[in-house]
């Protein structure tokens, strides 16, 4: 069992209902359990339906029994499927050590489309995420997923990007192995493509 840089290691995964939040947290959590760590996950789901804000907390420790929720300001990594939701969670959970990987593609709340709410300015929003974290990596996960054939693979693309972060507890190879265990046939192929492109999206930025 590799020593964790932070113990407990706290990861927030956020987005809106239907974006594959729960699956992403479960994949990360199972992988860490298999490595012998203690894992706790808390899922907050949008009232069982779609369209609301959702998030999962993934917590990993070598020996501590943890509650399923992360105290505010204590996240080490944030994976965001939507920029507004990423900012919401960054404000609450980010601290000086937090690294963030997120899809900057907005999904407008109904109120914005109906003209009763205003979506924050995209650039200001991204700048605030950047300023509240140690490092923030925007990755066009939904675009990548659509390129490879299905928007539903966006979560896997973002997980690919996640493995490329400096403090990622799981390597690209670790997650690739899990994908082959979880999926079969055409779905596996699609997810593998999305995953590879997701990995490359962060490499490109760093290079």
């Amino acid at each position: 069992m590799k020593k964790l840089k932070f113990d407990p290691l706290n990861i927030v995964i956020c987005g809106i209902g239907g974006q594959g939040n729960v699956l992403a947290s479960e994949v990360v959590g199972s992988a860490m359990t298999d490595r012998g760590y203690r894992v706790a996950i808390g899922e907050t789901y949008g009232a069982s339906q779609r369209g609301g804000s959702v998030m999962s907390h993934v917590r990993v420790s070598e020996d501590q029994e943890l509650s399923v929720l992360i105290p505010s300001g204590e996240a080490h990594m944030i994976i965001g499927f939507e920029p507004l939701e990423t900012l919401r969670m960054t404000r609450k959970y980010a601290g000086p050590n937090t690294t963030i990987v997120y899809d900057p593609r907005p999904v407008y709340p109904l109120g914005v489309l109906q003209g009763i709410q205003q979506y924050p300015d995209q650039e200001a929003l991204m700048a605030e995420i950047e300023s509240l974290s140690a490092a923030a990596y925007p990755v066009p996960a939904a675009d990548i997923a659509m390129e490879v054939g299905d928007s539903r693979a966006a979560n896997i693309a973002l997980l690919g990007a996640f493995t490329q972060l400096p403090d990622a507890p799981l390597s690209r190879e670790d997650l690739e192995k899990i994908l082959t265990q979880r999926f079969k046939g055409a779905v596996l192929e699609l997810n593998q493509k999305a995953f590879t492109k997701g990995c490359a999206a962060v490499n490109k930025k760093e290079a």
Binding site: G18, Q49, G51, G52, P109, L110, G111
Partner: peptide, 10 residues
């Protein structure tokens, strides 16, 4: 304040 995301039908 950040705008809230009201639940809606799919």
């Amino acid at each position: 304040p950040l705008i809230e995301r009201e639940l809606t039908f799919c």
